Measured scan of single mutants.
Amino acid sequence: MDVFMKGLSKAKEGVVAAAEKTKQGVAEAAGKTKEGVLYVGSKTKEGVVHGVATVAEKTKEQVTNVGGAVVTGVTAVAQKTVEGAGSIAAATGFVKKDQLGKNEEGAPQEGILEDMPVDPDNEAYEMPSEEGYQDYEPEA
């Protein structure tokens, strides 16, 4: 019985440690998101679009440190934060509304985080759909 109880105690310690790591990862992701939003706020009209992409990228980098179902929630929060940063930029006159959601080359930025393969159960990952990809044929 002692062996059984000791095993359960060790398992509990492992769960607590994993929860603490997840909590730490979420806190880091939130900190990076805040950094990115402050970065966007300090940019001029020309830099705002690039700044919004930076927020998304920093958040995406930190999301990889967070495991399990938390990833889905962090990704949703990050996307809403990026959308909010863009709205703030438009409201303050840093950028025109028609410039939001495009990178410096004018290509749409939507789907940055949505296409990231995420499995809350950590069982399997699927690649994003290939609808947006084109076949590449090298020139002879």
Results as ranks from 00 to 15, higher is better:
residue 88 I to H: 02
residue 110 E to I: 06
residue 37 V to I: 05
residue 23 K to E: 00
residue 103 N to E: 06
residue 21 K to H: 03
residue 54 T to D: 01
residue 124 A to C: 14
residue 100 L to V: 12
residue 137 E to W: 07
residue 52 V to R: 01
residue 35 E to F: 14
residue 21 K to S: 07
residue 78 A to T: 09
residue 122 N to Y: 03
residue 2 D to H: 08
residue 86 G to C: 14
residue 8 L to A: 01
residue 16 V to Q: 04
residue 78 A to F: 15
residue 104 E to P: 09
residue 26 V to P: 00
residue 16 V to W: 13
residue 73 G to C: 15
residue 63 V to S: 02
residue 95 V to N: 10
residue 71 V to T: 04
residue 113 L to H: 11
residue 99 Q to C: 10
residue 4 F to M: 03
residue 109 Q to V: 12
residue 26 V to Q: 00
residue 31 G to K: 11
residue 68 G to E: 12
residue 68 G to W: 15
residue 114 E to Q: 07
residue 134 Q to D: 09
residue 54 T to M: 15
residue 48 V to C: 06
residue 2 D to I: 02
residue 133 Y to S: 03
residue 118 V to H: 07
residue 46 E to S: 10
residue 26 V to N: 00
residue 55 V to I: 13
residue 98 D to G: 13
residue 14 G to P: 01
residue 137 E to L: 08
residue 38 L to C: 08
residue 52 V to P: 01
residue 77 V to R: 03
residue 40 V to M: 08
residue 65 N to K: 06
residue 125 Y to R: 06
residue 83 E to Y: 10
residue 124 A to N: 04
residue 97 K to L: 07
residue 90 A to G: 01
residue 140 A to W: 11
residue 117 P to W: 10
residue 78 A to G: 05
residue 17 A to H: 06
residue 75 T to H: 15
residue 136 Y to K: 09
residue 22 T to V: 09
residue 131 E to N: 10
residue 54 T to F: 13
residue 47 G to N: 10
residue 51 G to L: 09
residue 117 P to I: 05
residue 82 V to K: 07
residue 94 F to K: 03
residue 112 I to T: 07
residue 25 G to N: 04
residue 1 M to I: 00
residue 65 N to D: 04
residue 123 E to H: 10
residue 86 G to Y: 14
residue 113 L to C: 03
residue 113 L to Y: 09
residue 20 E to Y: 12
residue 89 A to V: 14
residue 134 Q to C: 09
residue 13 E to H: 02
residue 19 A to P: 00
residue 98 D to S: 14
residue 107 A to H: 08
residue 54 T to P: 01
residue 48 V to M: 14
residue 41 G to I: 06
residue 20 E to T: 05
residue 5 M to W: 06
residue 3 V to F: 02
residue 140 A to T: 13
residue 79 Q to P: 02
residue 115 D to P: 04
residue 39 Y to F: 11
residue 104 E to R: 15
residue 92 T to Q: 03
residue 123 E to P: 11
residue 40 V to F: 14
residue 25 G to H: 15
residue 110 E to A: 10
residue 10 K to V: 14
